[in-house]
Amino acid sequence: MYRIAICDDDISQVGFLESQILSYFEEIGIPNEIDGYHRGEKLIKSIVNQRINYQLIFLDIEMNGFNGIETAKILRKIDKNFLLIYVTSYEQYALESFEVFPFRYLIKPVSAKELRKVLKHSLIELSGKQEYLFYQIGSSHFQVQTSEIILLSSELGRKIHIELQNGDSVSFYGKITSIEKQLSSTNFVKVNSGTIVNMHYIVLFTPDSIQLKNGSYVTISRSRKKIVKSLYNQFIERNFGI
């Protein structure tokens, strides 16, 4: 699922972009969630406080309070991976905005045709950044985006169980040690001998256990408490600047 933010102090502009983006994603069958903001400060606050990872951010340049350049500079310190699309009436800001690495510009008034073109190129770019976990059931081979995985656990040391953010689950024969090698150590952490969690979905971290977004509680083994805490602190600092 793609998380998308739209930030513009023109309420009608936010509504137009949201309706067009929803329509486009519905046509191509890709799940998404869109949040609208009218001030850069509120966008920054939501990302920091709620630990939201947006893949795509549409940002106006001329806004009350923090303008789009100031907002993007702060956002880039928090997350360097999202695609930034400026929506503006002011082409003269192009040079100043280079340091925050905008992916595309949309000039107001935005046409549905140009927006769809930008969305198409954005998805191509984002799909190239997606990481996948590959697994086999019988003679069939499957793949799942690692960003969709909440939790992986080993059942009796012979079977892997995966819980996904959409509520689905997958089970297949395999060893947790071999699966661990496929996963990014910057996003996943092994909390005990048979469980790996995606740190993006942690909602509560205590010295002894972790609560995940789907309501699951996972115990941290005594031998891994220090390393799990260290890796999670690094994850928070890297993604949210906290």
Rank of each mutant, 00 (worst) to 15 (best):
N81T: 06
F25H: 02
V118R: 05
P207N: 08
I124H: 14
E27Y: 15
Y173V: 00
I69C: 06
G241R: 06
K42R: 12
N192W: 10
K190N: 07
P207T: 10
K181E: 08
Q145D: 04
Y24C: 08
Y54G: 09
I85Y: 05
L17Q: 03
G174I: 02
S153E: 13
S216D: 09
K129D: 05
Y173H: 05
F240E: 01
Y24V: 01
Y132K: 11
E125C: 14
K229I: 00
D208Y: 14
G194A: 10
Y37F: 15
G215A: 04
I85K: 05
S89C: 04
A94M: 15
K80I: 09
S12D: 06
V203K: 14
K77L: 10
T206M: 09
K45A: 10
K42I: 02
S209P: 03
L133W: 15
I137V: 01
Q182W: 04
L84E: 03
I196R: 02
L115I: 08
E70I: 08
S193M: 11
I124V: 15
E114L: 09
I160Y: 01
E26C: 09
S139L: 07
F66M: 13
N53Q: 04
I74M: 12
L212H: 07
I4C: 08
E41D: 14
K129V: 00
I28F: 13
V191M: 09
Q13A: 14
I137K: 15
Y90R: 02
S89P: 00
L183K: 05
T219G: 03
E27S: 12
L95R: 08
S89Q: 05
I162S: 11
V100E: 02
N192A: 04
S178V: 09
I47N: 08
I176R: 05
V100M: 13
I57D: 01
T195K: 07
I85L: 00
I6C: 13
D208G: 11
S193P: 05
Q234M: 14
Q50I: 01
E125M: 08
Q165L: 10
F58I: 00
Y173T: 03
G194L: 11
L152V: 10
E41W: 01
Y93A: 00
N81Y: 14
I227K: 11
V197G: 14
K42N: 15
S178M: 11
V110K: 00
M199V: 07
Y86S: 03
E70D: 06
E163R: 15
K73P: 01
E114M: 08
L183G: 11
V197P: 13
I6E: 02
L22V: 00
F235V: 04
V48K: 12
Y132W: 07
G29R: 10
T195M: 09
L95I: 15
K175N: 15
